[in-house]
Simulated scan of single mutants.
Amino acid sequence: MKRIVVALFALLPALTFAAGGNVHLDEANYDLTDKASLQNGAKLFMNYCSGCHSTQYQRYNRVAEDLGIPEDVMQANLNFTGVAIGDLMENAIPESDAANWFGAAPPDLTLVARVRGADWLYTYLRSFYKDDSRPFGVNNLVFPSVGMPHVLEPLQGTARLETETHTVDGVEVVTPVGIQTDGNGELTTAEYDQAVLDIVNFLVYSGEPVKLERQRLGYWVLGFLAIFFVIAYLLKKEYWRDVH
């Protein structure tokens, strides 16, 4: 019993980390078979996110092969550090400098989709809003007091927090109800949501590049076990036929 209690307490930080508070998480309907989405997600990630965040457990050539991107295109358009095509996808910022500039070194995002969840990422990237009290001028509904700028703001436009006020026991309570953009971004709301979904799709792939292959092999394994079960059952009947 004591071990069970200890295990539950050990899991609490991970569960809290993944939950992201009490904000409703929108469903991320990503599709790992959609190569166009994955390619666009890789392009957006490398152009807007990789300046600070690395995916250092991936290699450029493996991503290019999996996503159907020619290696010369990968090198020319998605590799901004000048390393070889077979090298790891690290960023160019020294960790000590990044920690000094941002207060903490930006985390590697290779496994972020497995840690946070696709729905959390999808909602988080669509929940930044203008907040002049913060160091970078923005805050986030999913991650309050966020310590990073809204790097996708040129695409989304200036986002502002919408609130509603109601009275509880004679006290006025202000509740956030959503995000509204000023319409000055490069993309419409629907286009921005799709762009974020493409990034999430890429990060889900990054967290487990062999997921589709694993699932495909799983069907073969289950089929083999089903056939083996029938053979084993018939052998058992044959061996025990004369046993009384």
Rank of each mutant, 00 (worst) to 15 (best):
K2P: 02
R3G: 08
R3C: 14
I4A: 13
V5R: 13
V5S: 08
A10Q: 01
L11D: 08
L12G: 11
A14Q: 13
A19M: 13
A19S: 15
G20T: 05
G20M: 02
N22I: 12
V23N: 06
L25H: 05
A28K: 00
N29G: 14
N29Y: 13
T33P: 05
D34Y: 00
S37A: 12
S37F: 06
L38T: 09
G41D: 07
G41M: 07
K43W: 13
K43V: 12
M46S: 14
M46F: 08
N47K: 14
C49F: 03
S54M: 06
Q58R: 11
R59A: 06
R59E: 09
V63L: 08
D66Q: 05
G68I: 05
E71Q: 10
D72R: 10
Q75T: 10
Q75F: 05
N77A: 15
N77F: 12
N77P: 10
L78F: 11
N79V: 09
A84I: 06
D87Y: 05
M89E: 03
E90T: 15
P94S: 03
P94V: 04
A98D: 03
N100I: 12
N100K: 15
W101T: 13
W101D: 15
F102I: 08
A105S: 12
P107G: 00
T110M: 12
L111V: 10
L111C: 10
L111A: 13
V112R: 03
R114P: 07
R114S: 14
V115W: 01
V115Q: 09
R116E: 07
A118I: 04
A118F: 04
D119I: 00
W120G: 06
T123A: 03
Y124H: 14
Y124G: 06
S127P: 03
F128D: 01
S133W: 07
R134K: 13
P135N: 04
P135W: 08
L141K: 01
F143D: 14
F143E: 15
P144E: 01
P144K: 02
P144I: 01
S145H: 13
V146Y: 08
V146E: 04
V151N: 10
E153I: 08
L155I: 02
Q156W: 10
R160S: 14
E162Q: 11
H166V: 12
D169M: 02
G170Q: 00
V171D: 14
E172F: 01
V174F: 09
T175W: 11
P176Q: 01
D182A: 14
D182N: 11
G183K: 00
N184F: 06
G185S: 04
T188D: 02
T189G: 12
T189Y: 11
T189E: 11
T189W: 10
A190Y: 09
Y192V: 00
I199Y: 00
I199R: 02
V200H: 02
F202S: 03
F202Y: 06
L203F: 05
S206D: 00
P209D: 02
V210M: 15
Q215L: 14
L217V: 12
L217Q: 13
L222I: 13
A226G: 15
I227F: 09
I227V: 15
I231N: 03
Y233P: 08
L234K: 06
K237S: 11
Y239K: 15
R241G: 11
R241V: 13
D242E: 13
